[in-house]
Design a protein around this nucleic acid. Sequence first.
DNA 1: TAATATAGTGTATAAAGTACACTAAGATAT
DNA 2: ATATCTTAGTGTACTTTATACACTATATTA
Lengths: 231, 231
Amino acid sequence: METNLVKFDSVFSIDCVIFGFDGSELKILLIERNEEPFKDWYALPGYFVEQDESLDDAAERILYEFTGLRDIYMEQFHTFGEVDRHPQGRVITVAYYATIRLNGQKDLESVSPIVKKAFWHPVNKLPKLAFDHTRIFTTGFLRMRRKITYQPIAFELLPEKFTLTQLQNLYEVILDKKLDKRNFRKKMLNYGILKELNEKQKGVSYRAATYYKFDRRKYVKLFQKELSFGK
Amino acid sequence: METNLVKFDSVFSIDCVIFGFDGSELKILLIERNEEPFKDWYALPGYFVEQDESLDDAAERILYEFTGLRDIYMEQFHTFGEVDRHPQGRVITVAYYATIRLNGQKDLESVSPIVKKAFWHPVNKLPKLAFDHTRIFTTGFLRMRRKITYQPIAFELLPEKFTLTQLQNLYEVILDKKLDKRNFRKKMLNYGILKELNEKQKGVSYRAATYYKFDRRKYVKLFQKELSFGK
DNA sequence: TAATATAGTGTATAAAGTACACTAAGATAT
DNA sequence: ATATCTTAGTGTACTTTATACACTATATTA
């Protein structure tokens, strides 16, 4: 793999683990690399941080350049600094993750020559990824899974309007287990962060489900009071 | 402040937020700097990562060199990468935290010329710190506070043998609120991770309390089953 | 032996989580 | 029109966990 590549002393990079949900499958955003090392491999969107930009800014810029996605709220989750993780030199990478909704219309379009294409891939049956990106993905996935148990981040993955069954499917996919329908609904509705809409599913060949949407204001209120230890 | 300092392009560093508890006060480990920039200022123990060491290794080494402490389990919690956070150039720092017990006997002793001295300082009334270390400390403190609500990390801060009242004091200091004695004891004992010892306090001028110790095996068992969403 | 200071204990109530199975409604085929 | 299919939608009893609250026990010292 190591051809006649430039060597560098030490650089920072960013890698992004972007989760998306299409209603039934949980996906992750990958790119196909157009540059050595790991040319033609699949990888997480990620690249070097510039001298004059903060980590958060770099994450936003790189995600845009590689995939065309903008205005995605990403959160840093871990920094990977093994000595040999990059064949060209010492690269320490700060990993970010985000959860976003997949509307069919959002086309991915790279404006970077480093990227052959960007695409969504189901998180099950991930192919081998470049560098240590498989490990980065796994760490990010576990972090996201843990977070969903104490913050209802699942809403960010769903379309604007969604049914309770879709919401439950998403939880089941992420947690990888079946949940009880009645208990799930009770719990979610009790949070008080769902608005029932005056609208039902159309074009389904069975009883149409009611659509809900997410009340972002109440969500913020509810989850900003930090967990307390009780009295 | 900026004298005729070396400039560097980009480097990684480590900073450590080490919490200690002496039975009544929660403290943090600080150093007094013996080197520009911020010579004579107080700061978190932290320095540059070498080319050939991983982040975790660097954290361990730097903590030892600066304070004499060894074999401390530290956990990475955030990476700070603002462009101007270091006056000499672009320094991205990976912050670690740990919670340890303060036995009087553990003397702090720096073997580094960069450090004038290392010492424990109460987390209340922290002095102004070098660089953005106040912010790093605050982020670490909030992380630790959150963690204590779902993992009994407090045991790592206490001496080998401790009384339930000491344990409760610690929780009250960290959470900054009073807890109910009976409920606290019930909850802690219910975890099943405490062993009651056949030994009581000595030299106190009131009824002596029973000592407990922490059953690390049961602890690990209990808190390795990840939080679940229920059924 | 009285005073003081902290250790140690129980019970009733409220809230949250869990287990579990049937009816309702729309679409489609006959 | 009616029977069939498929998913939506609902309630209740039980268990577990959290909360509120005040007195007795024991060691030390005056």
